[in-house]
Nucleic acid binder design. Structure first.
Lengths: 132, 132
DNA sequence: ATCCTTATTGACGTATACGTTAACTTATTC
DNA sequence: GAATAAGTTAACGTATACGTCAATAAGGAT
């Protein structure tokens, strides 16, 4: 089974980012495409990573934080290395607690905005009654 | 009933940010403290706003976006101004859709991290069995 | 052959979000 | 009254995350 491969501009088009951005992420160690001559070629793994990066960005994380994230996903789980496992576990749990705080913040903010929304709606209804 | 008031360093201490940061937020139009002579004095409203600002930052929004947010909260809901109401409603709905996307991103990420966590845990158990 | 497209590597420019330092005023304590 | 603490403005510095050239190379299309 052949692996699907992408050029840099194909990836850029798909995710609506610039090629510059993709190269920049590589510079920062977030992507590691193969080369064909001088040209970059991206496989499934890179594709998935880029998706992860953009999700991280939507959540407001810095590229450095996203790099740590990727590290968590990519850690080889060597069962012999109990120390490594515990280190990973600790890091994962820290990220989880940050994300859970974000969930709380999000829930609060959404709640408030939806109150404003329904307030708007009821006032617009009142308006339409007045006008008609 | 007397209003509680804060100095800049009291606010800074409470939220664990620098006075410079608080002044910067004022510069950008996010805060509008009173003055006593040259000194800034913050009331309940400023206190609440700062809380809102920091929540926005935890969600990864820029100060400009947070300013728009504050605008949504502070819009005077004049029922005569149907146009204004519809404009507000549109903006609120746009923010809501961004936040809902964030909720999806968060849920996905948390899900993946918690899988890694339980994977860690089960491997650590295996380890402890091996050792004992 | 030459032109066009797509790619590459620098290198410099820019907006955001503050940190840091300097120079100065005001209020309080010893 | 001299020192210390807390505040002010102004200005420059800095890290992040790219945008924007410029110069160059490689591969097809006409």
């Amino acid at each position: 089974m052949q692996q699907k491969l992408w050029t840099i501009s194909e990836l850029a088009d798909e995710y609506e980012i610039s090629a510059r951005t993709i190269r920049f992420y590589e510079d920062k160690g977030l992507l590691e495409p193969q080369r064909v001559g001088a040209n970059r070629v991206y496989g499934y793994k890179d594709h998935a990573r880029l998706k992860l990066i953009l999700r991280g960005k939507r959540l407001g994380f810095s590229l450095e934080e996203i790099k740590e994230f990727i590290g968590l996903y990519n850690t080889e789980l060597d069962p012999e290395q109990t120390g490594q496992l515990q280190f990973l576990l600790k890091n994962v749990r820290e990220k989880v607690s940050v994300l859970k705080q974000q969930q709380l913040d999000l829930a609060m903010t959404l709640d408030e905005l939806m109150k404003i929304e329904s307030e708007c709606l009821s006032r617009l209804e009142d308006d339409s009654l007045t006008v008609s």
